[in-house]
Amino acid sequence: TGIVNVSSSLNVRSSASTSSKVIGSLSGNTKVTIVGEEGAFYKIEYKGSHGYVAKEYI
């Protein structure tokens, strides 16, 4: 489990790349469930599926 550490919002992406499609966003202080790691990204549970967020903001 981690907490989103941004002042505005954090993009949730379809894969572990900054060039991948943005599938949603999370507000600061949102609790997320981390299910894996891939490079500079965490794989998280997101809306019944999975998404990826940059580690530096969790």
Rank of each mutant, 00 (worst) to 15 (best):
I3N: 06
I3E: 06
I3S: 06
N5W: 06
N5S: 10
N5L: 09
V6L: 09
V6F: 07
S7P: 11
S7K: 13
S7T: 13
S7R: 11
S7N: 11
S8E: 12
S8D: 13
S9A: 12
L10M: 07
L10V: 15
L10P: 09
L10I: 15
L10N: 03
L10Q: 05
L10G: 04
V12T: 01
V12S: 00
V12P: 00
V12W: 02
R13Q: 13
R13F: 15
S14T: 08
S14P: 03
S14R: 13
S15C: 10
S15P: 01
S15V: 06
A16P: 15
S17W: 05
S17R: 07
T18I: 14
T18E: 14
T18V: 13
S19H: 12
S19L: 12
S20L: 02
K21Y: 09
V22S: 07
G24N: 02
G24K: 02
G24M: 05
G24D: 03
S25E: 11
S25L: 14
S25T: 15
L26A: 02
L26G: 00
L26D: 00
L26R: 01
S27E: 14
S27I: 11
G28N: 15
N29C: 13
N29P: 07
T30F: 07
T30H: 07
T30N: 06
K31R: 11
K31I: 15
T33E: 07
T33A: 08
T33R: 11
I34T: 02
V35I: 15
G36M: 05
G36F: 04
E37V: 11
G39C: 06
G39A: 07
A40Y: 09
A40Q: 12
F41P: 00
F41E: 01
Y42T: 02
Y42F: 10
Y42C: 03
Y42Q: 01
Y42I: 04
K43H: 05
K43S: 03
I44H: 00
I44D: 00
I44M: 01
E45H: 08
E45R: 09
E45K: 10
Y46K: 00
K47M: 15
K47E: 13
K47N: 13
G48T: 07
S49D: 08
S49R: 13
S49L: 10
H50P: 05
H50L: 10
G51V: 03
Y52N: 00
Y52C: 02
V53N: 00
V53E: 00
V53M: 03
V53H: 00
V53S: 01
A54P: 14
A54F: 11
K55W: 03
K55N: 02
K55V: 04
E56I: 14
Y57Q: 08
I58F: 06
I58M: 04
I58S: 02
